[in-house]
Design a protein around this nucleic acid. Structure first.
Lengths: 237, 237
DNA sequence: GCTGGTCTGTACGAAAGCGCACATACATGG
DNA sequence: CCATGTATGTGCGCTTTCGTACAGACCAGC
């Protein structure tokens, strides 16, 4: 994949009008995002806000006993660190790179200054935050009501939407951490979905063969969130 | 309880400086909130934003098959209808009165005008929204990892914090809808907690006898959310 | 004070997921 | 090409919750 980096690969940045874009773009720093890198620890002061382009970031909560669960996932459609402009500065969750790639980052103070201009950026950030809220809410519902198979499919689709290819580099162990289930459970779900011919995998690589099939097998949660993102943040590639 | 209504019974309204308060208070309408009343339906245009004083409102998601789950709960610490100022206008969830009482409401346009002043009200609304995000995230985690007993205790405490008394008027059937579990499951959890001497109940009335005991029996989720609300929205009674 | 409707208690097999143990298979670097 | 560490497959008993069915208890209104 020939990656010619351009901040506009991030949908929020791409949606800015020219004058805002020019003011901001010079201040953005391109940042590599290696797999597993922790952008924010729970409760820690955030220094930057991150606009992923090719990377995917998981927001996950880690419990006292070490068990974890993914709250939401952020890719090039959004931004990591909403609590900076929401006013809280920190959150009780952790942000960790789930799929390696690149992001643009902006020092927290600059982002806050930009937010206070009450211009297009503020509007975009708030709408994105609402979309994020929808994703979290749906995660809660999904955790309550849907089977591991369904959740696995939903999770694959969420990741797929944020990747340029149809291949995820991801072990079952990591997926289990995200979903907050046992690794063996993921083995079983993945086996089911593979036997159904929707994916193919080998040691840390999952290739999606039949996206429509995955959507059919996932619960409604995926579609609800997707539709809400499209409504709140229309983006034409 | 002799209810002398005052918008300042809502913590967000109470936190406003005098000048903002005077501008806004004349526009607030006191509104009765009967049990079960639906403030917003999923996807429907919101016309008002609600500041509960004695009422409690549940945000819940209802699935295609009719099953439901509570996403978050709002009482006099917050406001119902954040998507009005976040820019989305609607959400995929439903807002329903879980405990009857009163609220002050403000027409959507007036709230938006106020938000755009970028004054103390904007700051409060955004911080509250971040607290709400934390609550939703924790709900997702709790749904994934904790037992029904723990979730039941957490839910009781969340309600209790938003009520002036230690008695909830609430059938087990309704609680089950909120938690997204079977009614029989709630019967069992409530029985366990009653046998432990923490609550006492009879046909739709639950009296909390030992609040500290409930907190000990609940999972960490309750404390995490409580702490985050206190941090983001300090309030002294 | 009876009655009808609602609310609560209990039981039981089924299903999903967990924790644990261990076997197997794959990829990569020496 | 082989060894080693990591990733994946599988089995099994246990626990929690579900679905369903039905019994009992309470309360309001006639």
């Amino acid at each position: 994949m020939p990656e010619i980096q351009d901040p506009r690969q991030n949908h929020l940045l791409a949606a800015l009008p020219v004058e805002d874009r020019e003011r901001l773009f010079s201040k953005l720093e391109e940042t590599p995002m290696p797999l597993g890198h922790v952008l924010y620890e729970s409760g820690a002061q955030m220094r930057h806000i991150y606009f992923p382009t090719t990377a995917i970031v998981s927001l996950l909560y880690v419990m006292e006993d070490g068990a974890s669960a993914e709250i939401a996932v952020v890719g090039n459609e959004g931004v990591v660190g909403v609590s900076l402009f929401m006013g809280g500065e920190t959150t009780p969750s952790r942000a960790v790179v789930q799929s390696a790639g690149l992001a643009y980052r902006l020092p927290g103070q600059l982002l806050k200054d930009e937010f206070l201009r009450a211009g297009p950026m503020q509007r975009l950030l708030l709408r994105y935050t609402q979309a994020l809220i929808t994703q979290m809410a749906q995660t809660a519902v999904c955790n309550r009501h849907h089977s591991l198979d369904q959740q696995f499919c939903r999770w694959l689709l969420l990741s797929l939407d944020r990747l340029p290819t149809n291949e995820l580099v991801m072990t079952q162990e990591l997926i289990a951490n995200m979903l907050g289930v046992r690794r063996e459970g993921v083995t079983e779900a993945a086996g089911n979905v593979q036997r159904a011919g929707l994916i193919e995998y080998r040691r840390g690589h999952i290739t999606v063969l039949d996206r429509a099939g995955l959507e059919a097998r996932a619960c409604e949660c995926y579609a609800v969130v997707k539709k809400e993102f499209d409504r709140l943040l229309p983006y034409t590639d």
